Simulated scan of single mutants.
Amino acid sequence: MRIFQLPSEASLPLLAGLIFGITYGAGVILQAARDGHLSKRDLYLISTFLVIFHSLFEDTMLFVAIGANGFILIFVRLILAVGITFIAARFAFHEQKQSLHR
């Protein structure tokens, strides 16, 4: 969570999306947003990561069943998810932060 500058409250929605899929993860994300634990930036970063790396076990097993290499699939998805989310964490809402300082 630190690499993306996210609070610890973001870990439950992120793990739910990774393990159970994007649909169940979205429910947990919505509940966390309603409770007010996560900012818009946090929700954006969690969603960005999960779009690329959701349903880790289910999707991987489906592709392995049709002949894909599971390790390569997980590795590529993980690298893309971490890389793109890291970039988004550094530049997301950058303009909003600047306007607050004026």
Rank of each mutant, 00 (worst) to 15 (best):
39 S>A: 14
50 L>Y: 12
56 L>Y: 13
8 S>Q: 03
62 L>W: 14
82 V>W: 11
34 R>A: 10
42 D>R: 01
34 R>V: 11
64 V>I: 15
23 T>K: 11
80 L>P: 05
93 F>H: 13
100 L>F: 09
50 L>H: 08
37 H>V: 15
58 E>A: 06
4 F>Y: 12
27 G>P: 04
36 G>A: 12
99 S>F: 14
42 D>K: 01
44 Y>K: 07
46 I>L: 10
95 E>Q: 15
83 G>C: 13
65 A>N: 13
79 I>W: 07
69 N>C: 09
21 G>P: 02
40 K>W: 13
92 A>L: 06
84 I>K: 02
24 Y>S: 12
33 A>W: 05
50 L>S: 01
54 H>V: 04
94 H>T: 15
92 A>W: 03
9 E>G: 05
85 T>S: 06
101 H>R: 12
70 G>A: 12
19 I>E: 01
25 G>N: 13
6 L>G: 01
42 D>L: 03
69 N>G: 07
41 R>K: 15
45 L>S: 04
36 G>I: 11
82 V>F: 15
45 L>Q: 03
78 L>I: 02
70 G>T: 00
71 F>P: 00
42 D>Q: 03
85 T>Q: 01
63 F>A: 00
79 I>Y: 07
87 I>S: 11
45 L>C: 06
64 V>E: 04
42 D>C: 03
5 Q>Y: 06
21 G>Q: 07
61 M>Y: 09
29 I>Y: 08
41 R>D: 02
45 L>V: 03
20 F>K: 06
59 D>K: 08
92 A>E: 13
93 F>C: 04
7 P>L: 02
50 L>M: 09
90 R>A: 04
67 G>T: 05
1 M>T: 14
21 G>L: 11
55 S>F: 09
31 Q>Y: 11
84 I>S: 11
32 A>R: 08
57 F>W: 13
5 Q>S: 10
83 G>K: 10
85 T>F: 01
35 D>Y: 07
14 L>Q: 00
47 S>K: 07
5 Q>T: 13
10 A>P: 01
37 H>F: 04
75 F>G: 05
